[in-house]
Write a protein that binds this DNA or RNA. Sequence first.
DNA 1: GTGGTCTAGACCACT
DNA 2: GTGGTCTAGACCACA
Lengths: 136, 136, 136, 136
Amino acid sequence: MPIHIDERSTTPIWEQIVQQVKELILKKVLRPNDKLMSVRELASALLINPNTVSKAYQELERQSIIETRRGKGTFVTEALSGQGNEQKIKEIRESLKLLVMESSYIGVSRDTLVQWIDGYLKEWGGEDDVNRPQSK
Amino acid sequence: MPIHIDERSTTPIWEQIVQQVKELILKKVLRPNDKLMSVRELASALLINPNTVSKAYQELERQSIIETRRGKGTFVTEALSGQGNEQKIKEIRESLKLLVMESSYIGVSRDTLVQWIDGYLKEWGGEDDVNRPQSK
Amino acid sequence: MPIHIDERSTTPIWEQIVQQVKELILKKVLRPNDKLMSVRELASALLINPNTVSKAYQELERQSIIETRRGKGTFVTEALSGQGNEQKIKEIRESLKLLVMESSYIGVSRDTLVQWIDGYLKEWGGEDDVNRPQSK
Amino acid sequence: MPIHIDERSTTPIWEQIVQQVKELILKKVLRPNDKLMSVRELASALLINPNTVSKAYQELERQSIIETRRGKGTFVTEALSGQGNEQKIKEIRESLKLLVMESSYIGVSRDTLVQWIDGYLKEWGGEDDVNRPQSK
DNA sequence: GTGGTCTAGACCACT
DNA sequence: GTGGTCTAGACCACA
């Protein structure tokens, strides 16, 4: 569970953790029912405040990506909901819009963007529906 | 120059203004040498503090997107240089990565993303007609 | 971290701070990873508004001279990259031109100018000793 | 008397005029007792407000670089004072300090600076004491 | 505790 | 009229 923090980054540490856990799951380094490091373990490993890790875990739980089983620890949830969270989609579209705008300004072409997207998807496992193992 | 602020959003007001001005330029509603609303005008139109507008304008100027002429007002810059800002590209790639991650989780396919991108680019298209009518 | 403000000067306070911080770094009074005074501390020390200090710090960060770590404070950046900023060079040449013009008018010779330059460079010299004593 | 204004520049127009007049004198395009264009002439030539030209001329007069002879016009003064205006010297030293600081940051060497200085002096007429014709 | 954002209102230089 | 700067004081997220 290799997570590393960039202290300089402007994105909050707890958010960096959230993002990296998600990435580890997409990359299948972490799989459903795998146990995460405890809050204290991870905090001391990263040399940060346990509160910060806790906040990250809470956010991940809120997104139903992990779940805590009392007395046992924190685990990756079984199935990742592919339910079209409308709110989330809106956010993604908004982010994408800004991203395409910025790309336009500095001269990054459409095709380059698409290439980058494909690059990431390939890196994380190829199949188009990696995130919905039960369907199909 | 229709700008509107989302008070609830977590992104700072000044940044919302920056983004929307950029969008207006991409959409060619604002064209090179066009005058922006004055700091005071825009501030009272949006019911926000002039300082906030000022900060937005200063950031836009820093990015060479607009320029202020003393005592005259603020204007859209002549040409948008496509200088390959490496730092900026890094940021875009990072954002894109997160965005693709989120998309995977929520079940948004690669093709949908590409469609969205093409949609935005088309919307800002290259036509040279002044103030494209929103209808059509 | 001795900074002092000239209230009479026409150059903005925030810019005076920027300049003096830069000077302190060149003089090696401040070194990479050193922590700057907090916005509030410096503001109350200088009897100015925290916003003004903040603006100075933000400008220094924009120039990659310092960096802020959330909730921790503001620190001197590791390495000063000598990236050949063309725009900046143009500005320097312009300033230098004016300066030489003024010098000519007032009867300051070329050699005097060169002496002054050497004086400054020597003052900020390359020695690696921490906090060079002003005495000696 | 070729003067041109950069509307985009952040330095005030009146100051641009002051600088360029000084430069023209150093370059000997304008010589002692030469008549300057009238305020109105110059203003309409530059498409700017006469007040702005007036302000520039006032500043030049304040520095004893030009003088107005009532009913006759404005003229370049006879001899340029080489008196070591202490205040002015202080200002020059301060500017030079900042300039050298900035140069250090972006990696412009001492020798480059000296070359630039020599370049300007040569451009304006070579002799070291161009500005004090009466001595020697 | 840290820095980031915003408001309210003031003054200034430039045109 | 324009934008730039500063003050006073408030609230927020982050650690």
